[in-house]
Amino acid sequence: MIIEPLRSPGAKLVMVRLLSMVVAILFIGCGGVDPAPQRAPSHQQDTLSTGTLSSYEQRQGKHLYTKYCAVCHGEEGKGDGFNAFNLDPKPRDLTDSKYMTALNDERLIETINEGGRGVNKSPLMPSWGGRLTEEEIRYIVSYLRTLFRSR
C-alpha cells in the first residue's frame, strides 16, 4: 500500500480517528474481557426445611433414620429412643464422636446391612440389608456423620 505523505494539518487527526475507530470496533466485536469466574454460592444458606443438613444424602438419611433407627437410637442419636428401655445391651450412642470417627463408612454400612450379629455384636440390632437398598443405607450413613459433628 502506498501512502502519500501527509501534508495537510488535518491528516494527523484523520489517522488518529481512524485508528481509534478500528480499536473501538474490535473492542465491541470482542465484547470486552470476561470478568473473573464466579464461584457458585453454597446451598447451605438454604435453611428453611433443611436445617443444617447440607446435602441431599443427609436429608434423605434423616428421613430414613427417623423411620427406622430412631425408635432405639433416639431422635438425636443419643441411644435413648423409646424402645431403648427394653434393650440390653443398650443401643449405641451415635453422637459419641470418638467411637464414631474410629469407624469408617464401609464398617457402618456393613453393620446396618448385616445387623449386630453380622459384626459380632448384639443380635438385638436387626439386619437391614433385606429392607433397605444399598443406596438408602448410604444415605443413613451420611446422616449419621452429622450427628456427632454438629456437637
Partner: peptide, 19 residues
C-alpha cells in the same frame, strides 16, 4: 432370641421391646 433378636421389638410375657 439368639440369632435374629426379635425380642428387641416384640414382647412375649411382658419381656421385650414395644415397637
Amino acid at each position: 432370641y439368639e440369632k435374629y433378636g426379635c425380642q428387641a421389638c416384640h414382647q412375649i410375657n411382658l419381656k421385650g421391646g414395644y415397637v
